[in-house]
Design a binder for these strands. Structure first.
Length: 481
RNA sequence: CGGGGUGUAGCGUAGUCUGGAUUAUCGCGCCUGGUUUGGGACCAGGAGAUCAUAAGUUCAAAUCUUGUCACCCCGACCA
């Protein structure tokens, strides 16, 4: 899929639409449903692990950014700022009323750490107030110079978790819980394979002590996409906002904290990782339509028409009983062939076709979107089998994506070969690195490749691909979106 | 924010270089009626465009000039 096809696919399947403002997208029902499904799945997992949802305001007073923390460096160049509160009409034109200038400018949140930590200061007094396990579903605005719909928007929807803990070990436990949850979401629900690991100092969230991230590769151009991040903030924010609690011994201590998030970028990842030349392929677990039923009706034979309709009604009822999201497309003005193409493009995992042939044999024809395999199931006995097929699709697209990721992953120890692979967009290059910031920057300068993450699993002695210095671990290089 | 490209109906486009007879082309889609319906149906009729936007040059602008906006590509920046 080329970039142009990516955009065309999004527009033509009505996932999203461009708004009039640069980098701001309109999520249409089909796209928004995918987000709702992702949200519902993740939300359940977070609630189960004792997290609670809150909502903090969109606007943050500028003064809250006056803190001693590198954090502001991340966003200072991409903030939307509110300066006035009134409009007025002058010469038939709307203008900003100059007299309504705000005493203090308001920043549209690029992320909510500041306002949340400023509030935690008031909420947290005692060890009994801890932990604070809070999550927020919201939008944030970052006026990016370069946009790519879903992947790099100026506004996006996300989930931001902000937790506070009495002890470091509690914060670490929290991070491990979120790691598991994200892993489950990405691998099992979105069928996306990934490599995960720590960010380098240069690549990490600047407010964090360290950042853990999940990275995957697009199917066609081998660019890496960041899927989720988890930050160990240590005491960075509690110190910046003076958030202290009194422990059991009556001593004042700064709290430990974490933050973590996923965003609508995941939808972009799903598109770029699973789609084929016929269109989207949606993982069944998040597909707005899991099964589409297309009747083949011939108007000449009304008996069959009625029979087909009646049987399809029964099938729909049975599918609804097992909570399968089903759509019956009985539009008589569109030919079956047209419908086939339409729903294939939309990535609907399963298509059921029923016509005279099926009715005569008491069966239904089932076609999988992922590999176009056909099954013929008995009309009275199909529920378990449909679920099985949906699960198979869920797994199969993961396996396909994983194979693709493996095909584009190389262990390389020669810098010339490294440069060649990166130049040809070959995906993840796993090489030794001397842990030196300067080396990392030099490599970036020469090849545009960055260190996507440092997984634990590549422990092995070697020599840095660039400097030749000692290395104890391989790291993952790639070109990112 | 720098360099390049694009913007014509819901979508894709012709026309732009070389300004004028263009009633702005064609295909898809849309609407009406009818026949169809097992992999992108057919016939007949119909609607739909201030040619992104603002200003300028000109007797005359989709076409030339300039500004603005959006989108795409390449950089810089950035989760």
């Amino acid at each position: 899929m080329k970039d142009k096809d990516y955009i065309n696919l999004i527009i033509s399947t009505k996932l999203a639409y461009f708004s009039k403002i640069k980098g701001f997208m309109i999520l249409r029902p089909y796209g928004y449903k995918i987000w709702e499904n992702i949200k519902n799945i993740l939300n359940k997992m977070l609630i189960k692990t004792n997290h609670e949802n809150v909502y903090f305001p969109l606007l943050i007073p500028k003064s809250l950014f006056n803190i001693e923390n590198n954090y502001i460096k991340s966003f200072s160049k991409e903030c939307a700022i509110v300066t006035h509160s009134r409009l007025k009409i002058k010469d038939n034109k709307v203008i900003i009323d100059p007299s309504s200038k705000l005493n203090e400018e308001l920043i549209i949140r690029p992320t909510s750490e500041t306002i949340i930590w400023d509030t935690y200061k008031e909420w947290i007094q005692s060890y009994r107030d801890l932990p604070v396990l809070i999550n927020q579903w919201s939008n944030v605005v970052r006026l990016e110079m370069k946009n790519k719909i879903f992947i790099r928007n100026s506004e996006f929807l996300w989930q931001e978790g902000h937790t506070a803990h009495a002890y470091k070990k509690d914060a670490i436990i929290e991070i491990n819980i979120i790691k598991k949850i994200y892993k489950n979401l990405i691998k099992k629900k979105l069928s996306i394979p990934f490599i995960s690991g720590y960010k380098t100092n240069i690549e990490k969230f600047s407010g964090a002590k360290y950042t853990y991230s999940f990275e995957s590769l697009t199917k066609y151009n081998g660019k890496s996409i960041q899927l989720a991040t988890i930050h160990f903030l240590a005491k960075n924010f509690s110190k910046a906002f003076n958030v202290m609690f009194t422990n059991k011994n009556g001593k004042k201590k700064y709290v430990w904290s974490t933050s973590w998030g996923i965003s609508t970028r995941l939808i972009g990842a799903i598109i770029m990782i699973h789609s084929d030349n016929k269109g989207l392929i949606l993982p069944p677990k998040i597909a707005p339509i899991q099964v589409v039923i297309i009747p083949i009706i011939n108007n000449k034979n009304l008996i069959y028409k009625n029979k087909i309709n009646n049987i399809i009604k029964k099938i729909i009822n049975n599918l609804k009983k097992i909570k399968i999201k089903v759509k019956y497309d009985n539009n008589k003005y569109i030919t079956p062939g047209n419908k086939f193409f339409k729903y294939e493009k939309m990535g609907v995992p399963i298509r059921i076709t029923i016509g005279k042939k099926e009715i005569d044999k008491n069966i239904m024809e089932i076609t999988r979107r992922d590999n176009f395999k056909k099954y013929y199931l008995n009309i009275n006995n199909f529920k378990k089998k449909i679920i099985k097929i949906l699960n198979k699709i869920q797994k199969n697209i993961y396996i396909k994506a994983k194979k693709n990721m493996k095909k584009k992953t190389f262990f390389i120890d020669d810098y010339n070969l490294f440069k060649e692979k990166i130049y040809n967009n070959c995906g993840f290059i796993i090489s030794h690195w001397d842990k030196n910031n300067k080396t990392e920057l030099k490599i970036k300068e020469e090849t545009k490749a960055t260190i996507r993450c440092i997984p634990n699993k590549f422990k092995e002695k070697g020599r840095c691909i660039y400097s030749g210095k000692k290395s104890y671990k391989r790291v993952v290089f790639g070109k990112s979106y």
